[in-house]
Amino acid sequence: MAMNADPNSGSTDATDSADVPGEELLPCGRKLGDVWRQWEDGLADPHTRTCPHCSAALHDLDRLQDVVRRARAEEPPQEDTGALVDRVMDVVRLELRPGRTLPLGASAEDDWIVEAAAAKVFRAAADSLPGVRTGSCRIAPAGSGAAAPARRARGPVAVRVEIVVAATVNLQRIAEQVREEVFAAADGLLGMEVGSVDVTVTDVVPEDDLAEGGPR
């Protein structure tokens, strides 16, 4: 096989098995693929430095890479994505996942709130503590246990919160502080009876890694 292998062979790259790179031989006997790969991997080779065929092959690649660098530099930034965000969120709002329906107010009442809405309030409450960022927040109806909860069961709910904390946070006290915030938010912002709040610290990270104030 000489320098001009079938130029179309590369475009029929349908399967990996047909993909045997670098078989093409330069007149000096080196495989083009090997020469380029050495260059890419930064390996020195006395032959390629002096061989005119290898030099020519590397020159071609160099020209290509030069154009590639310019293409990257010339590319306009794609910052005007506002319309894209709106289109995505329009679809998302038609496919909301409200989660379970949970009791609001006293046991005898017939008011309810969806889990996703209550969880947002509890996450924000926990996030208000310095050095705390909340991830998962699940809320289960009373006495649901492991079994599937009865639809629309009244009674105090069980809250499970996962938090990431800054290394500066006192790990002994933080769980209790989060519990207090969640109980306070449940009563003051929602009017929801909470039976228990389980707090799991999933990660301790450098203080700088926690975004100021969080997303909300």
Binding site: L96, P98, T101, L104, D110, D111, W112, I113, V114, A116, A117, K120, V121
Partner: peptide
């Protein structure tokens, strides 16, 4: 009437 109210979002 029996009135059931569900908060679906905030």
């Amino acid at each position: 009437a029996r009135v059931t109210i569900t908060v679906t979002g905030l």
